[in-house]
Simulated scan of single mutants.
Amino acid sequence: MGHGRNVIEELTADHREAESLFDRIQELLADDAQRRELADEVTMELVRHSVAEEQYLYPAVREHVEGGAELADKEIEDHAHVEQLLKDLEGAQPGQPAFEENMTRLVQAVTDHVQDEEGRLFPLLEDACSAEQLNELGEKVRQAKKTAPTRPHPSAPNTPPANKLLAPGAGMVDRARDLLTGRGH
């Protein structure tokens, strides 16, 4: 993911990409091994997306949007729930009940989160920020996704400054593991 737009366009494009991956997973037979590969791909994309939002989007919401702290806290809670679902999904194989149950929960949680962000948070941010601020945030989000972890780390910090300090190191370790295992390729 990396779309070269303002933060709202960037994150909305990420949402469509995740939805597309979910659709591809659902189109395959329950025990098709490709479902595991696609689950890994959606995990990698969602983790990078979430880390970037936590590092840059939610601090901007806190700063610029009236009632932004409560909005950001709710979105971070959503992320924690999704990250735990991703962790639970990580060990499951297609055709196993755990894979199906966790995938169903994940799709619903992400769908709810996307609807909330696109229907409420993004319009509020767009009203509160200038085009230049939104473009700058978009660039920061794109850069954060390049170094973000690719695996779920539910116990990792999800607010600045700790997340900005630890995420790049975890991302480097995750990408090394991915390279060694062939995950995501």
Results as ranks from 00 to 15, higher is better:
residue 100 E to F: 06
residue 139 E to S: 10
residue 65 V to A: 09
residue 37 E to K: 15
residue 77 E to Y: 03
residue 115 Q to W: 05
residue 101 E to T: 13
residue 184 G to C: 07
residue 51 V to Q: 00
residue 54 E to H: 01
residue 146 K to C: 03
residue 178 D to P: 01
residue 9 E to R: 08
residue 29 L to C: 13
residue 55 Q to F: 05
residue 104 T to W: 05
residue 65 V to E: 14
residue 148 A to V: 02
residue 173 V to R: 02
residue 51 V to H: 00
residue 157 P to Y: 06
residue 132 E to C: 02
residue 111 T to P: 02
residue 182 G to F: 03
residue 89 L to F: 05
residue 141 V to K: 01
residue 83 E to W: 03
residue 22 F to E: 08
residue 48 R to L: 11
residue 118 E to Y: 02
residue 21 L to D: 05
residue 17 E to S: 14
residue 179 L to D: 14
residue 126 E to P: 04
residue 11 L to D: 08
residue 74 K to V: 05
residue 183 R to Y: 00
residue 151 R to L: 14
residue 120 R to Q: 15
residue 6 N to P: 07
residue 46 L to C: 09
residue 132 E to V: 11
residue 123 P to L: 09
residue 176 A to S: 08
residue 17 E to Y: 15
residue 142 R to V: 06
residue 148 A to I: 00
residue 142 R to F: 00
residue 29 L to H: 15
residue 69 A to C: 10
residue 98 A to V: 15
residue 153 H to P: 12
residue 10 E to I: 12
residue 27 E to R: 11
residue 110 V to N: 06
residue 169 G to Y: 03
residue 116 D to Y: 12
residue 96 Q to E: 15
residue 1 M to F: 10
residue 12 T to C: 10
residue 69 A to S: 13
residue 91 G to E: 14
residue 177 R to D: 06
residue 6 N to V: 01
residue 127 D to Y: 05
residue 107 V to K: 09
residue 111 T to G: 15
residue 7 V to C: 10
residue 157 P to W: 03
residue 66 E to D: 15
residue 92 A to Q: 09
residue 27 E to C: 04
residue 54 E to K: 00
residue 44 M to D: 11
residue 17 E to D: 15
residue 35 R to W: 07
residue 152 P to N: 02
residue 120 R to N: 13
residue 24 R to E: 12
residue 21 L to P: 07
residue 143 Q to N: 10
residue 116 D to S: 10
residue 19 E to F: 11
residue 169 G to D: 10
residue 91 G to I: 06
residue 116 D to K: 14
residue 102 N to L: 13
residue 52 A to H: 00
residue 38 L to Q: 03
residue 52 A to W: 02
residue 74 K to H: 15
residue 16 R to D: 13
residue 132 E to H: 06
residue 119 G to L: 12
residue 70 E to A: 11
residue 185 H to M: 14
residue 154 P to L: 04
residue 103 M to P: 05
residue 61 V to R: 12
residue 121 L to T: 15
residue 39 A to M: 09
residue 106 L to T: 04
residue 104 T to Q: 14
residue 132 E to M: 05
residue 108 Q to N: 13
residue 44 M to R: 11
residue 16 R to S: 13
residue 149 P to M: 10
residue 134 L to W: 00
residue 61 V to D: 15
residue 66 E to K: 07
residue 121 L to P: 09
residue 114 V to F: 10
residue 57 L to P: 03
residue 48 R to M: 11
residue 122 F to K: 01
residue 125 L to S: 09
residue 145 K to F: 11
residue 83 E to A: 10
residue 78 D to P: 02
residue 76 I to A: 06
residue 70 E to Y: 00
residue 39 A to F: 03
residue 135 N to M: 14
residue 48 R to I: 03
residue 117 E to N: 03
residue 62 R to C: 11
residue 159 T to F: 13
residue 48 R to A: 14
residue 154 P to T: 03
residue 130 S to Q: 06
residue 84 Q to T: 14
residue 62 R to D: 11
residue 153 H to G: 01
residue 36 R to M: 12
residue 100 E to Y: 08
residue 136 E to C: 09
residue 116 D to R: 14
residue 139 E to C: 08
residue 49 H to N: 00
residue 45 E to N: 06
residue 77 E to I: 09
residue 52 A to E: 05
residue 133 Q to F: 01
residue 79 H to V: 10
